[in-house]
Computed example of a mutant assay.
Amino acid sequence: MHVPLFPLNSIVLPRGRIPLQLFEPRYIDMLTRCLKEDRGFVIVLLREGMETSISAAFYDIGTYVRIIDFQQLDNGLLGITVEGEAKVAVTRSWQAPDGLNMGDVEPLMDEEQWTVPESFVELATVLRALFRHPVVNDLKMHVDFDDARHVGWRLTELLPIDKQEKQRLVELQDPIERLGRLKELLEELD
């Protein structure tokens, strides 16, 4: 599947939402094509470079997202909200003449559903607290606080951790292993 790639300093995972501001012509054109063709794009984490740079390097595991809302912002920019659908691997990437990164992607296997083990129940409590923050609450995400995938995905998105660590958490396919690493990272933040 050929899709546009959107390198960011942020991540989003399945069922997660992230607001974006678009101002570069290449991304406004991408948005127009995505809406017209009823398709999404892939958000990949920047490895190095800037979000506005034409020659940014990015990781090859990201998330296929769909646009769920868009509006003109007070600052004159176009604002969109996207929701993650599935983790994907970028098998090949190139740059279109307009500077838009494009890629061939393959979906990764869905992660197995697990109930949050008793030893990680405090992570769900931390996530509930984060969801009380107005910015997070405004995204209107549905979260199953008993599902280890949901808890791990949302904490990976929301916690203030190093971006390389975030990428390692994105790449994990075992929700319980992700919760274990998140618990370690939270203990380091204390």
Rank of each mutant, 00 (worst) to 15 (best):
F70P: 09
D110K: 09
A56K: 06
V121R: 15
G103T: 00
V90N: 04
L5V: 04
F23E: 01
A89F: 13
Q95W: 12
V88T: 02
M50P: 08
G84V: 03
G40R: 14
R149W: 00
V126C: 05
R132M: 15
I43D: 08
Q72W: 11
V42N: 09
V42K: 12
L22R: 12
F6I: 04
Y59Q: 07
L130I: 08
D74H: 15
S93A: 00
F120Q: 04
Q71T: 04
V126R: 13
P4A: 02
G99C: 06
T91V: 03
I28T: 02
K140M: 12
L130K: 08
E118N: 13
H133P: 13
V90E: 02
V116E: 03
D38G: 15
D69Q: 08
P107N: 10
I61P: 08
G99M: 04
N75R: 12
I80D: 01
K140S: 06
V135S: 06
T125W: 13
D29W: 11
F70K: 15
A96N: 11
F6Q: 02
M141K: 08
L20M: 14
E106N: 13
V90G: 02
V121D: 07
L8K: 11
V90Y: 09
N75H: 11
I11W: 13
P134N: 09
D60G: 04
N75P: 00
I67M: 09
F70Q: 09
E111Q: 06
T32Y: 05
I43Q: 13
D98N: 07
K87E: 02
L130W: 12
I54Y: 10
L78T: 03
W114M: 02
V143A: 05
P97Q: 05
L46M: 05
E122W: 13
R17T: 04
V121Q: 14
R39W: 07
D60V: 01
G103N: 05
R149T: 00
T91M: 05
F70C: 08
Y59H: 10
R128E: 01
M102W: 12
F41A: 00
L139V: 04
D104E: 10
G79A: 09
F6V: 00
V82K: 00
D38Y: 14
Y64G: 01
E24Y: 15
G40F: 12
V126H: 11
T91Q: 02
Y59R: 10
P107Y: 08
F6G: 05
I61Y: 10
L73K: 04
D147K: 00
E111D: 02
E48F: 12
H142T: 00
E106T: 06
K36E: 00
G103S: 03
M102D: 10
V65W: 10
E118I: 06
D144E: 07
L127G: 07
E51G: 15
S53A: 12
I61H: 11
E51S: 15
P25H: 11
L31P: 10
L5S: 01
D104A: 14
D146H: 08
I18T: 08
D144F: 07
L8I: 05
Y59F: 05
P107H: 07
G99Y: 11
I54L: 07
F23M: 11
A86S: 03
L8R: 14
F58L: 13
E112Q: 03
D147N: 02
R92F: 07
G40K: 15
F41G: 01
